[in-house]
């Protein structure tokens, strides 16, 4: 399957570009559009029913934190899993290679929602059926929904990133690795000092795009009753019977989150030394 390349993040903007962007904003038709958007926003704030908002604000905040925790946890754990998945597909022995690429294909070929429900309902009912598990320390956690959500998100991220890292590891020029070996570095050292940093560096633009995609997958965990942002908004909709207001707020929050995340990741990417 071809790699996702529709979300290539843009280069970091320089001061001059920002100024040009500002000047671009002042073109007459954009001023009119901006005015229209602002009147639309004002109409939304004044005409629509937002009386529920103050009461739900603390819960919305909690939901936002849950969403961010799930995103951060699954990205970190998933990336840690993606590294071995990538390496094994490049230099591993054949059975391991098949296993890793099979894992990536299966996870990438089926919907995340299906995986999530398989883990939550399937594993959940399996665990509950064995009294032995009920007595272990893990049971209080296994009874909750979030570990399954985190697991499903992690597996999904690991599979997509394993594929990305496979390409990145394979793409590091062989001469660099040979040079490192010629310096007398041990295989371990070659990996940690040359191969891994170069591969991560190559994969970085794709990885930052994938993190945004991962943010957009997180609301799925609301379907297994994890109280993330989306779940809270669903509760608001059920309690207030409003159609538009909670959904518009939700879309607005995700727009802001994506924008903040994009800018932060772009900044991070810009700080990475890019020596060839």
């Amino acid at each position: 399957m071809p790699d996702m390349d529709t979300i290539t993040p843009l280069r970091p903007a320089t001061g001059a570009q920002l100024l040009a962007g500002l000047r671009g904003l002042l073109m007459p038709h954009r001023l009119i559009m901006l005015a229209l958007a602002l009147t639309g926003l004002a109409a939304m704030v004044t005409q629509m029913d937002w009386s529920w908002l103050p009461a739900y604000l603390p819960r919305l905040w909690g939901g936002l934190l849950t969403t961010l925790w799930m995103l951060a946890g699954s990205v970190i754990l998933g990336f840690a899993l993606a590294l071995p998945l990538g390496v094994v597909q490049v230099i591993g022995p054949r059975p391991l290679r098949w296993l890793a690429s099979g894992f990536c294909t299966v996870v990438r070929g089926t919907p995340l929602l299906l995986q999530l429900w398989l883990l939550y309902y399937g594993l959940g009912s399996l665990f509950a059926a064995y009294p032995v598990i009920r007595e272990t320390w893990a049971w209080p956690y296994l009874r909750e929904a979030w570990p399954y959500g985190l697991l499903a998100l992690t597996i999904s991220f690991a599979a997509y990133e394993g594929e990305v890292m496979r390409g990145a590891f394979a793409g590091v020029p062989n001469g660099e690795l040979e040079a490192a070996r010629a310096f007398g570095m041990s295989p371990r050292k070659v990996f940690f000092r040359v191969w891994l940093p170069r591969a991560v560096h190559r994969a970085l633009p794709v990885l930052t795009g994938e993190i945004i995609l991962q943010l957009k997958s997180t609301p799925l965990i609301a379907t297994i009753a994890v109280a993330d942002l989306y779940a809270i908004v669903t509760r608001v909709r059920q309690a207030t019977l409003l159609t538009y207001e909670p959904l518009l707020l939700l879309a607005g929050i995700y727009l802001c989150l994506s924008a903040i995340l994009t800018i932060a990741l772009r900044w991070l990417e810009g700080r990475m030394p890019s020596g060839g």
Binding site: T6, I7, I212, L215, K216, S217, T218, P219, L220, Y230, L247, L250, A251, Y254, L255, S258, A259
Partner: peptide
């Protein structure tokens, strides 16, 4: 591209 598919 910025809002989750589910929400859209």
């Amino acid at each position: 591209r910025a809002v989750p598919e589910l929400v859209l």
